[in-house]
């Protein structure tokens, strides 16, 4: 499968604070790829580089064949969709307006067509009946679903999900996992998921990359079940077997 995202010897972090060094992997078209590790290991930082919020400190990062720059930003923004940890819905718009926003700004659809498209997206995430509700009136899980619908509005090539299970009860978290699998199979979309929830990783991730804060490096890359069984790194085995990282 062709790579949608390629990282080649990337140094991740912020100016003056390198968090991860020499990270290389690729994300293939149509897969669910998980970024794993304990809190503060740099998985969200890597995602921020991928979605163009922060420039990489070193190495090369390509998304859909392009590097982030002022020249490519507008094109790349239409090729990705992002669901943030809190949902990041706009509080002064109802759910339907939130989903319609990218369509209003970037599509050439008429008002009625935009509305129909947004309603279809809300139906995909099983929230058609919450279209007129404000973000403050719906639960955290529902907000994340609306955020996924908004992220998919422009038919992006990659959808990034930042900790989709965070703050959710196990039942809601599992239903969100099912939704990701459904969207993956129905729309053939690529997903990059930042998470540390083990049940979710084993259920949805085709492949994963794991990072370690103390070594400032990517320490594993592969299929989660295989890494659990056969990784030579005790940190990785511990993470997958117990969810703990004491070596």
């Amino acid at each position: 499968m062709e790579p949608v995202i390629e990282l080649d010897k990337v140094d991740a972090g912020y100016p003056g604070a390198t968090i991860l060094k020499n990270v290389s992997f690729d994300v293939r078209k149509g897969e669910v790829f998980a970024l794993l590790g304990t809190s503060g290991c740099g998985k969200s930082t890597i995602m921020k580089h991928m979605i163009g919020l922060n420039p990489v400190l070193g190495g090369r990062l390509k998304v859909c064949g392009m590097e982030w720059s002022d020249r490519t930003r507008a094109r790349l923004c239409r090729k990705i969709g992002v669901m943030y940890q809190s949902g990041a819905l706009f509080g002064n718009m109802n759910c339907l307006e939130n989903v319609m926003l990218p369509l209003e700004e970037f599509s050439r659809l008429g008002r009625k067509a935009r509305r129909e498209r947004a309603m279809a997206l809300l139906a995909d995430v099983e929230l058609a009946d919450a279209a007129q509700k404000m973000p403050a009136e719906i639960s955290g899980g529902m907000r994340k679903r609306v955020a996924i619908a908004r992220a998919m509005a422009l038919d992006p090539e990659v959808v990034f999900l930042d900790e989709p299970s965070a703050g959710l009860d196990p039942v809601t978290s599992a239903s969100l996992d099912n939704l990701i699998l459904k969207l993956k199979s129905e729309k053939a979309m690529t997903f990059v998921v930042v998470t540390h929830e083990l049940p979710s990783i084993f259920k949805i991730a085709d492949r994963c990359a794991m990072f370690d804060k103390s070594r400032q490096a990517m320490i594993a890359l592969g299929v989660p079940a295989e890494l659990k069984e056969s990784s030579e790194d005790p940190f990785v085995r511990n993470f997958f077997s117990r969810g703990e990282c004491h070596v």
């Binding site: 992002v82 990041a88 706009f90």
Partner: peptide
């Protein structure tokens, strides 16, 4: 993170 959401939406 709503500002980040706007930025990534272009």
């Amino acid at each position: 993170e709503e500002l980040d959401a706007l930025t990534t939406m272009g």
